[in-house]
């Protein structure tokens, strides 16, 4: 069913409400869980500077003001990206979060650029050869792969990489190499930065390190997209318009390319979007604990260990915002390529 414009509009309104809901909820959590909110916001400081830090946190939050003012202020801070200094990293929270997002997004986008076309191809190919050995192999494989914990698969991939080539894909880039070649990340997407600067050694290094975790992450979307596109192709092959086109003498390849594929692209985009938001968590787990890459995962773990409350809360809020943003964008893309929806 095509997504209507009206629906997207409602969606956006709702999304804003959801985001505000999460922000308010975070703030209430800060206020009403055991302990002084100012102390928590200051990150349980110790030592001589503690009093000052707590006072500053109290002022930042405006704890002496009525609750609705505090909340409004907090929402304002969230939307302006102004949540103060991170306790653990000593840089603005927004900067910490941004760097985390770029790192994790680079990995995710890389994985999805790999996964969606591959899944689509597998799904279509096995649908067109239904019942063949290739089809049943892909079917069984996708069931097994979908049952694997991503982090476990990541560990196995790392192990295979290490035992066959002796290369351990750890971190985002070799810092020695980066320092010696004067690599200077600007956008935070290392692959992109290295290409722009023409630093091919770093590019290759970053590429080799991103492929194993991306492979682990891509298994889930490959399976999902392959499964869904196989069913969609099957359904499309039964459509009246395909039958009619056959009767008109349209060739098989034309039918597949122009009649079948065009109809499955919008739902495939939608399902990829759903999978994408699911994969964010996957990526956070895999990148930090298995592959030792900096990103949202490592920031989350760090902020928890170091009681960096601001970063934790900011992460939760911005993650939700991002989650909703992806969903909404996917809906809009889907609507804009479906001719049945007027833009």
């Amino acid at each position: 069913m095509p997504v209507s414009l009206n629906y997207i509009f409602k969606r956006i309104i709702l999304s804003i409400l959801v985001v505000i809901g999460v922000i308010v909820f975070s703030y209430i959590l800060l206020l009403y869980t055991p302990g002084d909110p100012a102390v928590k916001w200051a990150g349980n400081p110790r030592g001589p500077e503690a009093r000052k830090a707590i006072e500053m946190a109290r002022r930042e939050l405006g704890l002496d003001q009525p609750i609705h003012v505090q909340i409004a202020q907090f929402i304002y801070h969230v939307f302006t990206g102004n949540l103060g200094l991170s306790i653990a990293y000593k840089v603005p929270v927004s900067q910490v979060i941004t760097s985390g997002f770029t790192a994790t997004l680079e990995l995710l986008v890389f994985a999805y650029l790999l996964a969606v076309p591959l899944g689509l191809w597998l799904g279509i190919y096995s649908a067109l050869r239904r019942g063949s050995r290739f089809d049943s192999f892909i079917q069984s494989l996708s069931v097994v792969l979908a049952s694997m914990p991503t982090f476990w698969l990541g560990a196995i991939i790392a192990l295979i990489s290490y035992s066959t080539t002796g290369f351990l894909p750890y971190g985002r880039v070799s810092y020695k190499l980066a320092a010696s070649t004067g690599f200077n990340p600007i956008t935070g997407f290392y692959l992109l930065d290295a290409l722009i600067q023409g630093n091919y050694a770093v590019f290759l290094d970053a590429l080799l390190r991103i492929i194993p975790p991306a492979l682990a992450i891509s298994v889930y979307p490959i399976g999902v997209v392959a499964r869904v596109s196989r069913t969609l192709v099957a359904e499309a092959l039964l459509e009246d318009y395909v039958r009619t086109a056959v009767a008109w003498g349209v060739r098989r390849n034309t039918i597949i390319k122009h009649f079948v594929l065009k109809s499955i692209i919008p739902p495939v985009i939608q399902i990829s979007g759903l999978a994408f938001v699911y994969s964010i968590v996957d990526a956070m787990v895999v990148e930090s604990l298995v592959f030792g890459r900096e990103g949202l995962g490592s920031i989350l773990l760090d902020s928890l260990h170091k009681a960096d409350f601001r970063v934790t809360i900011a992460l939760a809020i911005y993650l939700t915002i991002f989650y909703i943003l992806v969903n909404t964008i996917v809906d809009i893309i889907q609507a804009s390529i479906d001719p049945r929806v007027k833009i």
Partner: peptide
């Protein structure tokens, strides 16, 4: 042989 199908609503691809 060419063919004029029975259901006009579903016999044309909505994407073309």
């Amino acid at each position: 042989v060419s063919y004029i199908p029975q259901n006009p609503g579903t016999s044309l691809s909505p994407f073309l």
